[in-house]
């Protein structure tokens, strides 16, 4: 039996640690099946270079939150995050991915 892959969308959000709770709360409300957080990342943005240190405060740390959701949820998530990015720095991008266990990621099987 071959492995069928189903297309889904992956959303990645990189924000200051301060806002992590808001983003994960939003994902919960949208009923995303789960998310992964990579903490204390370093990087460079419009304003500055950022290097991580384990003793940095929450405000100064940078986190990446990734989640895989069916396409219909993408707009909801974008709508919820748009006000945040109007004032605060951070990035968010949407990519196409494929998964094999689509029910696990919240997509209804075809025909319902």
């Amino acid at each position: 039996m071959g492995l069928t892959l189903h297309p889904m969308k992956e959303i990645r959000v990189i924000v200051a640690g301060d806002h992590q709770a808001f983003v994960t709360d939003l994902l919960d409300r949208v009923k995303a099946t789960g998310y992964t957080i990579i903490g204390n990342v370093s990087g460079k943005g419009h304003h500055s270079v950022h290097e991580a240190h384990f003793m940095f405060s929450e405000q100064e740390s940078l986190e990446m939150i990734m989640t895989v959701v069916p396409e219909e949820k993408v707009e909801l998530i974008l709508a919820g995050l748009r006000p945040l990015f109007e004032r605060h720095s951070g990035v968010m991008f949407v990519a196409d991915v494929a998964v094999s266990r689509r029910e696990y990621f919240g997509m209804q099987p075809a025909g319902s």
Partner: peptide, 17 residues
Amino acid sequence: RSDIETRRMELRGIVRL
């Protein structure tokens, strides 16, 4: 329904700010 949901999410973002 999705329109209402979108408005709800957006409102949450506004309230946070």
